[in-house]
Amino acid sequence: MLLISCPWCGPRDEVEFRCGGEAHIVRPKDPDALLDSEWADYLFMRTNPKGVHRERWVHAQGCHRWFNVLRHTVTHQILAVYRIGEAPPEVEHHR
Protein backbone atom coordinates (compact mmCIF):
# COMPACT_ATOMS: atom_id res chain seq x y z
CA MET A 1 0.00 0.00 0.00
CA LEU A 2 1.43 3.34 -1.04
CA LEU A 3 1.26 6.64 0.81
CA ILE A 4 1.21 9.27 -1.92
CA SER A 5 1.73 12.98 -1.34
CA CYS A 6 -0.63 14.88 -3.60
CA PRO A 7 1.01 18.25 -4.38
CA TRP A 8 -2.25 19.98 -3.39
CA CYS A 9 -3.79 17.77 -0.69
CA GLY A 10 -0.77 16.26 1.06
CA PRO A 11 -0.19 12.61 1.99
CA ARG A 12 -3.14 10.35 1.27
CA ASP A 13 -3.78 6.64 0.98
CA GLU A 14 -3.22 4.94 -2.39
CA VAL A 15 -6.92 4.02 -2.73
CA GLU A 16 -7.71 7.70 -3.43
CA PHE A 17 -5.49 7.68 -6.51
CA ARG A 18 -5.29 6.09 -9.94
CA CYS A 19 -2.03 5.42 -11.73
CA GLY A 20 -1.94 6.90 -15.24
CA GLY A 21 1.15 5.10 -16.49
CA GLU A 22 4.42 6.42 -17.89
CA ALA A 23 4.89 10.20 -17.79
CA HIS A 24 6.56 12.57 -20.25
CA ILE A 25 5.20 10.87 -23.36
CA VAL A 26 4.61 13.81 -25.68
CA ARG A 27 2.02 13.57 -28.42
CA PRO A 28 3.73 14.21 -31.76
CA LYS A 29 2.84 17.60 -33.19
CA ASP A 30 2.24 16.35 -36.73
CA PRO A 31 1.11 12.70 -36.66
CA ASP A 32 0.56 12.63 -40.43
CA ALA A 33 4.27 13.21 -40.98
CA LEU A 34 5.30 10.16 -38.92
CA LEU A 35 6.28 6.70 -40.02
CA ASP A 36 3.95 3.98 -38.76
CA SER A 37 6.76 2.76 -36.52
CA GLU A 38 7.12 6.21 -34.92
CA TRP A 39 3.39 6.42 -34.30
CA ALA A 40 3.46 2.89 -32.81
CA ASP A 41 6.30 3.96 -30.54
CA TYR A 42 4.25 6.90 -29.28
CA LEU A 43 1.04 4.90 -28.87
CA PHE A 44 2.23 1.57 -27.51
CA MET A 45 5.93 1.26 -26.66
CA ARG A 46 6.85 1.82 -23.04
CA THR A 47 10.08 2.08 -21.06
CA ASN A 48 8.85 -0.24 -18.29
CA PRO A 49 12.06 0.14 -16.26
CA LYS A 50 13.18 -2.07 -13.41
CA GLY A 51 14.21 0.85 -11.25
CA VAL A 52 13.10 4.47 -11.09
CA HIS A 53 9.90 5.04 -13.08
CA ARG A 54 8.49 8.41 -14.08
CA GLU A 55 4.73 8.06 -13.90
CA ARG A 56 1.51 10.05 -13.75
CA TRP A 57 -1.07 9.75 -11.00
CA VAL A 58 -4.46 11.40 -10.55
CA HIS A 59 -6.05 12.16 -7.20
CA ALA A 60 -9.30 10.58 -8.40
CA GLN A 61 -11.14 10.67 -5.08
CA GLY A 62 -9.68 13.98 -3.93
CA CYS A 63 -8.85 17.14 -5.85
CA HIS A 64 -8.96 15.21 -9.15
CA ARG A 65 -5.72 16.77 -10.37
CA TRP A 66 -2.90 15.03 -12.21
CA PHE A 67 0.74 15.08 -11.12
CA ASN A 68 4.00 13.21 -11.68
CA VAL A 69 5.76 10.75 -9.39
CA LEU A 70 9.22 9.20 -9.38
CA ARG A 71 8.83 5.73 -7.92
CA HIS A 72 11.13 2.72 -7.74
CA THR A 73 9.45 -0.28 -9.33
CA VAL A 74 11.13 -2.88 -7.11
CA THR A 75 10.96 -1.23 -3.68
CA HIS A 76 7.84 0.85 -4.56
CA GLN A 77 9.54 3.74 -2.72
CA ILE A 78 8.26 7.14 -3.86
CA LEU A 79 11.33 9.29 -4.47
CA ALA A 80 9.71 12.54 -5.61
CA VAL A 81 6.39 14.13 -6.47
CA TYR A 82 6.30 17.01 -8.96
CA ARG A 83 3.73 18.90 -10.95
CA ILE A 84 2.70 18.37 -14.55
CA GLY A 85 4.92 20.44 -16.83
CA GLU A 86 7.90 20.32 -14.48
CA ALA A 87 11.07 18.41 -15.28
CA PRO A 88 11.74 15.34 -13.12
CA PRO A 89 14.01 16.24 -10.19
CA GLU A 90 17.36 14.56 -9.66
CA VAL A 91 17.05 11.92 -6.93
CA GLU A 92 19.28 9.48 -5.16
CA HIS A 93 17.89 6.10 -4.38
CA HIS A 94 18.96 2.95 -2.66
CA ARG A 95 17.74 -0.46 -3.76
Partner: peptide, 13 residues
Protein backbone atom coordinates in the same frame (compact mmCIF):
# COMPACT_ATOMS: atom_id res chain seq x y z
CA UNK B 1 -2.38 -3.61 -9.27
CA UNK B 2 -2.59 -0.41 -11.30
CA UNK B 3 1.06 0.63 -11.03
CA UNK B 4 4.16 -0.84 -12.69
CA UNK B 5 6.21 -3.12 -10.50
CA UNK B 6 8.90 -5.77 -10.46
CA UNK B 7 8.48 -6.31 -6.73
CA UNK B 8 6.34 -9.49 -6.69
CA UNK B 9 3.90 -7.97 -4.24
CA UNK B 10 0.99 -5.57 -4.42
CA UNK B 11 -1.25 -3.41 -2.30
CA UNK B 12 -3.67 -4.76 0.27
CA UNK B 13 -6.74 -2.96 -1.02
Amino acid sequence: DGFNSYGQRGSFH
